[in-house]
């Protein structure tokens, strides 16, 4: 490694957005996440990869306390967002989730119009003072979701009437509309066809300008295409976490290598 690259790397060093230390998650008696520590950078796409049931989605859902909605789930350890513990007693998960938005595996537009789908978050969080502002937020969000051109003529048509890829981009736009700082994406492309997947991946790359994006994915190619950092989970453990290029070209852990080369999965 020469000096030049060192300088480049130093320039690329960014703020830590989320830092998790010694996180343990239990589902009833099952120990689902075992002692995971990870630092997630701002304005970066971080990918979580690993075989099914390895805990990557569970860990992702800890980052905005979505696991609170499951009765039997218990989280231990510290997860800091900008240095503040999100599991602190004083934290209202509702306020947290406004900052840490989430996009789900299956597109889940509400059975409302496209406009109302986007406006839902801003409305509940009171982000718009009047109708004009709300209109503005909706348009901006749809543009950010790269779907504005496709739906601008039918904002009041039901969101459920869109195609799968459009629905997912609508859901991303919906998540963006609350002005989050972090976007969590739980296998956002697994229910989409290749063309829609390409569109969403392109969108994720653009979102990196403004947000810290964490994406759980099944597909290693996708992780390689969209992410700068990659974490490999296996059986509830974080096996390896490093730059994406490093993970895919020169993994340190033999398990990572086996997974990437298709021997476990």
């Amino acid at each position: 490694m020469n000096d030049m690259t060192k300088i480049e790397r130093a320039l690329e060093m960014k703020d830590m957005k989320i830092s998790a230390k010694n996180v343990q998650v239990y589902y009833g008696d099952t120990h689902a996440i075992k002692d995971v520590s990870v630092e997630i950078e701002d304005k970066t796409v971080t990918a979580f990869i690993g075989p099914s049931g390895c805990g990557k989605s569970t860990f992702l859902r800890c980052l905005n306390r979505m696991n609170d909605t499951i009765d039997i789930c218990r989280v231990e350890g510290d997860i800091l967002l900008d240095g503040e513990d999100i599991y602190d007693k004083r934290v209202d998960p509702v306020q947290l989730r406004a900052k840490v938005g989430m996009v789900f595996q299956k597109p889940n537009p509400f059975p409302k119009s496209i406009y109302d789908n986007i406006a839902y978050g801003p409305r509940i969080h009171g982000l718009a003072r009047n109708k004009a502002e709300l209109d503005e937020i909706v348009e901006k969000s749809l543009r950010r979701g790269a779907i504005w051109d496709e739906v601008k003529d039918r904002l009041h048509a039901p969101g459920t009437g869109l195609s799968g890829g459009q629905q997912q981009r609508l859901c991303i736009a919906r998540a963006v509309a609350t002005e989050p700082e972090v976007l969590l994406m739980d296998e956002p492309c697994s229910a989409l066809d290749p063309i829609a997947t390409a569109q969403v991946e392109e969108l994720i790359d653009e979102l990196r300008q403004s947000y810290s994006v964490v994406i759980v994915t099944h597909s290693m190619q996708q992780a390689a295409r969209v992410s700068q950092k990659t974490a490999f989970f296996h059986l509830g453990n974080l096996v390896e976490y490093d730059d994406t290029t490093k993970i895919f070209t020169n993994p340190e852990d033999p398990r990572t290598e086996s997974y990437i080369t298709g021997r476990i999965g």
Partner: peptide, 13 residues
């Protein structure tokens, strides 16, 4: 967009 003008703490309601 995406760069909130005011940074609020999640510890305060």
């Amino acid at each position: 967009m995406g760069a909130p003008t005011t940074k609020s703490s999640i510890l305060q309601l």
